[in-house]
């Protein structure tokens, strides 16, 4: 059995490592998550994507060895990880279920995005309970809740319109006491579709010639707003998300194929463009939005 070590800190920084560890290989795979101590939406969705990919290549579900720590298990349950992981992992163990009643501190549980109405559902949830968490608990202004909803709507539509495959979205707020001394919103959207290069190749590859690849396709969509649709109203979703993220002094990064592109603020050290990673035929969008600080009124 081939063992894939899941990083102890399973967050947005571990996403590439986890996706890159799932290159096709024969035999049963085991994801060893026993030592996971910290997990965020990016880590959860990366784990689901990696498991799905391994299962698709190997023909049988990979095994997931669950985290030892009960608080990590409880958090995964509250985020709906175990429901989403059914049919992705063979878990052998009875994983804790999400409780159906009571107040939840979860901003947006792992939600599959397969139809237009799923996007409406996500926005409705954010405008409801999640909006209350943002405005009452975290002191985000109402306008920020709406902007957050718009960002979620646009990134989820990216799955439906460009991936041509299902995906997931999840979001949560954390307090980054040491790094920023404030709350951040972490949004993760992952799909296992055709990726940005796959979406754009037919319409745009010819003009790039030999330079065409995952990094060029990401630059075309991310920086220049190109889409495969001839309609001039298209392609503004990502551009507007970037604008909103800059306004919040946040991070947005997109991993697709062998490349990743990002807008990075001064407080993070992620490179703006990375190429030559293992092929991930899909897209993983990560957005991190710092909220108002304690002194921001």
């Amino acid at each position: 059995m081939h063992v894939i070590d899941v990083p102890a800190s399973l967050d947005y920084r571990a996403l590439d490592a986890l996706l890159d560890s799932t290159v096709p290989a024969p035999g049963k795979r085991l994801f060893d998550a026993r030592h996971v101590r910290w997990v965020d939406p990016c880590g959860m969705l990366a784990l689901l994507a990696a498991g799905t990919r391994v299962g698709a290549h190997g023909g049988e579900l990979p095994h997931l060895q669950l985290p030892d720590q009960t608080d990590v298990l409880g958090y995964l349950a509250r985020m709906g990880f175990f429901t989403a992981a059914e049919g992705v992992f063979d878990m052998n163990v009875r994983a804790p279920r999400r409780t159906a009643s009571g107040e939840s501190d979860v901003l947006l549980e792992i939600t599959p995005i397969t139809t237009n109405s799923d996007v409406h559902e996500v926005v409705d949830r954010v405008q409801g309970r999640a909006g209350q968490i943002l405005s009452r608990t975290l002191r985000y202004p109402l306008s920020a809740v709406v902007q957050f909803s718009v960002i979620l709507s646009e990134v989820c539509q990216n799955i439906l319109e460009h991936a041509e495959a299902p995906g997931w979205v999840a979001a949560q707020a954390y307090r980054w006491q040491k790094r920023l001394g404030r709350h951040v919103l972490v949004i993760s959207v992952v799909d296992l579709g055709q990726g940005f290069r796959g979406s754009l190749t037919e319409e745009h590859s010819a003009r790039f010639g030999d330079r065409w690849g995952d990094a060029t396709a990401l630059e075309a969509a991310f920086i220049h707003g190109l889409t495969r649709f001839p309609d001039s109203g298209r392609g503004q979703g990502i551009q507007q998300i970037r604008k909103q993220v800059r306004r919040w002094d946040g991070v947005i990064s997109i991993r697709s194929g062998r490349a990743r592109i990002a807008d990075v603020p001064t407080w993070d050290d992620m490179p703006p463009l990375t190429d030559g990673m293992e092929d991930f035929s899909g897209a993983a969008i990560t957005i991190i939005l710092p909220g108002p600080g304690d002194d921001d009124g």
């Binding site: 709406v146 718009v150 709507s153 109203g233």
Partner: peptide, 15 residues
Amino acid sequence: VNVLDFSCADEVVAK
């Protein structure tokens, strides 16, 4: 209307 995203604004207003 409490939330208006860019895609919808393109359809409902611009188009």
